[in-house]
């Protein structure tokens, strides 16, 4: 498993060399200007962008017979699937940490003037992007195993679209279900927890689905 995780890190590393400096520059711009729109874009977009980049890197693996070679290594097929899900979570965590760092820096420099009715606190903003990034993985991997690496770009786009629709759908549903008199803090955080819970359940179910598809796959 350790070797598989190392490989998954290596495959993304090159792309991160480009994305990471860009993320840092964007983060510095957000922190220096203190622009609330930029902060929202940075917080909500970084994790999904990184997530898309991580899944697209699987294309590089498919250029060799590595995907086939891995099955002949002393690892179980479920370990191979596991390694992708763990790597995906790790990269999501990295992006969340980056977002949290620059958000903290922005708030320290400019004061807490960003969190209002829509996004009540930093947690919502940070989690918003993270949840979307995790959802992208949850949709992507089973489709990747089912449809194959040749369709990786379209699978990534579909995953992003479905993830956005699901998150927006859940949010709208929660808004409909709660009263019209405005959302209380308790309802707000319960809703937030519900979205996180749904994301976790979707990610776990996705893992088992991918395992199931990959188990029957032939190369």
């Amino acid at each position: 498993m350790k070797g598989l995780l190392k490989n998954n890190f290596m495959v993304v590393k090159e792309n991160m060399k480009i994305l990471f400096p860009l993320a840092v520059i964007f983060g510095v711009v957000v922190s220096v200007t203190g622009n609330s729109s930029l902060l929202s874009i940075f917080s909500l977009a970084l994790s999904p962008i990184l997530s898309i980049l991580v899944v697209l890197c699987l294309r590089k693996e498919s250029l060799s017979k590595w995907y086939k070679y891995k099955i002949s290594l002393p690892v179980k097929r479920k370990n191979i699937v596991q390694s992708y899900y763990i790597s995906h979570l790790c990269w999501c965590a990295v992006s969340i940490v980056i977002v949290a760092f620059f958000m903290l820096l922005t708030v320290i420099i400019h004061g807490n003037q960003y969190f209002y009715y829509g996004f009540r606190d930093a947690v919502t903003l940070v989690l918003g992007g993270g949840v979307l990034a995790i959802f992208i993985g949850a949709i992507f991997y089973p489709l990747y195993y089912y449809l194959g690496a040749e369709k990786i770009e379209i699978i990534a786009i579909i995953s992003l679209a479905i993830s956005v629709v699901i998150i927006a759908g859940i949010s709208i549903l929660i808004n409909i279900l709660v009263s019209d008199n405005g959302v209380s803090d308790t309802t707000y955080y319960i809703s937030l927890l519900a979205i996180v819970g749904i994301t976790v359940v979707a990610f776990v179910c996705s893992y088992f689905l991918s395992r199931c598809v990959f188990q029957a796959k032939e190369y």
Binding site: G3, L4, K6, E61, S64, W66, Y69, P74, V75
Partner: peptide, 22 residues
């Protein structure tokens, strides 16, 4: 043909294999 991904070096491949083969 190509058994291993071409983004690796032999050193990195060795590190990966060390984490797979006992």
């Amino acid at each position: 043909g190509d058994n291993f991904p071409n983004y690796l070096t032999a050193i990195q491949l060795s590190n990966i294999m060390a984490g797979i083969y006992k």
